[in-house]
Amino acid sequence: MAKVFIPAQMRKLCGGQDVAVLDGTTVGELIEGLGRRFPGVSALLVEAGDLRPSIAVSVDGEIATGGLLERVGPNSEVHFIPAIGGG
């Protein structure tokens, strides 16, 4: 079961919870699972079949490049963070 950390501004949709433990082998599956448990959350993360452009996902401390298709392990820790640009 992967550990999904819920961004502060989505916690009110998740009963105040900041972590959800979910089954899934990809980031996409975890988001689907999160959405089933907490309706409305997945629309904040996903748009037109991809991660929203304003959001980056970190899997086990590493910014993932695979978007929803990024593989996650059974003990992975997943964070959603704002996507940013450099100079």
């Binding site: 950390f5 970190s58 401390g61 590493e62 820790e77 964070h79 963070i81 704002p82």
Partner: peptide, 17 residues
């Protein structure tokens, strides 16, 4: 004394390598 190092969670969540 307060410095981040390997394993410290970054304020946005994930731990540093």
């Amino acid at each position: 004394l307060n410095g981040s190092h390997e394993g410290t969670p970054h304020p946005a969540g994930p731990p540093y390598k």
